[in-house]
């Protein structure tokens, strides 16, 4: 029988995605037996982040500052706005180092059956954010709900006379055509470019 403190730790670790009872127990015992220092640092880091991280006032990504470092950077092009579903998408796009504009995070996608409509996603905030923007790049995921979200944003931005683009879907680098699904290939063909 585990003591209440250890049991509490194991139960707390299980809130993490992909962590079942066995993994939680292994993590708890590792922290207690092998790495007390790391455990304290982890606890401190979690407390700090959970208390201080909030949403950036202009792009709504996660940050402890009022405005995130991307929004506050004067060298980034404020006329280009890339709309993404989650902060993780910003990390991915930033790693590509090929985008110098600013972002807007929807924190989800339009999914009427789940009760998520334009109001729940905060589309009015996005529309306010469009002032001074000349091109909106819609980088929602290539799912049916991501496409619906893209279409909704496109309609609203076009009404304001703003250019709207959608990121291309296609064949991954190093991929082989014969293993790629028909939907992606059809997209890749439809948006082919002249060489």
């Amino acid at each position: 029988m585990l003591s209440p403190l250890i049991d509490h730790l194991i139960r707390s670790l299980r809130i993490l995605p992909g962590v079942g009872p066995k993994s939680a127990q292994r993590m708890a015992l590792y922290l207690l037996e092998r790495n007390r220092e790391g455990a304290l640092a982890l606890a401190q880091a979690i407390t700090n982040a959970a208390e201080h991280v909030k949403h950036c006032v202009s792009c709504r990504t996660l940050t402890e500052q009022n405005q995130c470092s991307i929004c506050a950077n004067p060298r980034r092009d404020a006329s280009l706005l890339c709309v993404v579903e989650s902060p993780a998408d910003i990390f991915a796009l930033e790693q590509s180092a090929s985008f110098n504009g600013k972002y807007f995070v929807l924190h989800g996608r339009l999914s009427p059956i789940d009760g998520i409509g334009p109001a729940e996603l905060g589309m009015d905030k996005l529309l306010e954010r469009l002032n001074g923007v000349t091109e909106v790049i819609v980088a929602t995921n290539p799912t049916m709900e991501g496409e619906a979200t893209a279409h909704y944003i496109a309609e609203k931005a076009k009404q304001r006379g703003i250019k709207v683009t959608r990121i291309a879907h296609g064949v991954p680098i190093g991929g082989e055509l014969e293993y790629i699904d028909g939907g992606t290939l059809a997209h890749a063909l439809a948006s082919r470019r002249e060489l």
Binding site: I113, A148, H151, D181, G182, G183, A186, H187
Partner: peptide, 26 residues
């Protein structure tokens, strides 16, 4: 299994209509 692979079968306004039908049926 998909019976035939087609790229997003619905786009734009048709997609909104499709989502409406699905919500209605559910």
């Amino acid at each position: 299994e998909l019976t035939n692979h087609i790229a997003f079968s619905l786009l734009g306004h048709s997609l909104f209509c499709g989502l409406y039908i699905n919500e209605l049926l559910l």
